[in-house]
């Protein structure tokens, strides 16, 4: 039997108002069956300052509730100011940090840290190098198929592996802000229009099909990844941590559903039905896990969760 699985909550990727975010984390601290919580602005450095005043009290409350708190760095670091935020995190010896750019991993070398999903870890060679550098948990890129997860699961040694099992898939990063562009604004004078879309701005094809979601400089999937049905297999492969990306739904309830399945308490089909009822933002997908289009949903009957 694999060690106890951890349910984790990735950083909020969207520009939620700071107070909303604070209250969200308070509720997670008080109510959610979540083991690890990642905090911090990953997408756009212009947003970083809003939530910073709340970080100490939020981290404290989460820690008091027995949750491991990890501070996530920016994913795309292009200037000195952005680099400085990473340096500040890396310089705080008592902080646990998730590096979302290789520069973060370099600064954290020699002490335990987490490698975030925006660092490209596709194979055992890369995993070994990063673990040698001090990574004790590696969050894998969302596009890895089960075959790769299996190999990495065997190669990870003492390091934990984390896989995203719920939420929109983070597909791309850019220097350009598409939220601003969509509103005919320049990035420098963006008026923080991204705040209007708590799950990203819907992007449809010309024929009206949901396709992508824009979150400032980030592009995500329209569909929400759900690997509820794949959880058992993932555990068998040696994946120990399961990431839920925050969306504007009842995340405490979402966490409860995943925890119920992880514990083997709840019936899978029932849990899936409850999740579907709870999350009406967009359809689910699991294609990347099955080595197909990320947007695909491989139906339950076409694969066996144990196989």
């Amino acid at each position: 039997m694999s060690p106890a699985a951890k349910l984790t909550l990735g950083p909020v990727l969207y520009n939620w108002p700071a107070e909303v975010k604070r209250d969200f984390y308070f509720r997670i601290a008080d109510e959610a069956a979540i083991d690890v919580v990642y905090l911090g602005e990953v997408v756009c450095s212009k947003r970083s300052s809003f939530f910073e005043p709340y970080v100490p009290e939020v981290s404290e409350r989460l820690a008091r509730a027995g949750k491991e708190v990890v501070h996530s760095t920016l994913a795309l670091i292009m200037n000195e100011r952005e680099m400085e935020t990473v340096r500040a995190l890396a310089a705080a010896p008592d902080m646990r940090v998730e590096a979302n750019d290789i520069s973060g991993a370099a600064l954290l070398a020699g002490r335990p840290h987490v490698i975030g999903p925006f660092v490209n870890v596709y194979n055992e060679g890369t995993l070994e190098v990063l673990v040698r550098g001090g990574a004790d948990r590696v969050v894998l890129p969302c596009e890895l198929p089960v075959g790769s997860l299996e190999v990495l699961g065997r190669a990870a040694g003492n390091a934990e592996l984390e896989v995203q099992v719920f939420g929109r898939l983070p597909l791309a990063l850019s220097a350009r802000c598409y939220h601003a562009r969509a509103h005919d604004l320049h990035k420098d004078g963006c008026r923080y229009v991204c705040e209007e879309d708590p799950d990203g701005m819907a992007l449809e094809t010309l024929e009206g099909d949901g396709f992508l979601a824009v979150n400032g400089t980030q592009t995500l999937s329209h569909t929400l990844c759900s690997l509820l049905r794949e959880l058992e297999k993932l555990r068998d492969l040696g994946i120990g941590c399961f990431r839920l990306w925050p969306q504007s739904v009842d995340m405490v309830a979402v966490a409860g559903i995943f925890q119920g399945v992880l514990d083997g308490r709840d019936d899978l089909a029932e849990a899936e039905a409850r999740l579907r009822e709870l999350v009406d933002i967009a359809p689910f997908s699991n294609g990347f896990y099955h080595g197909r289009e990320g947007a695909d949903l491989v139906a339950a009957e076409t694969f066996s969760p144990a196989g």
């Binding site: 490209n120 969302c142 898939l169 791309a172 220097a175």
Partner: peptide
């Protein structure tokens, strides 16, 4: 590329064939 190179899986999302892989 308008996205940061090597950090874009848009095409894989639509086709299952990945730029990185």
């Amino acid at each position: 590329c308008v996205m940061a190179e090597g950090r874009c899986t848009l095409s894989a999302y639509a086709t299952g064939r990945s730029p990185n892989m």
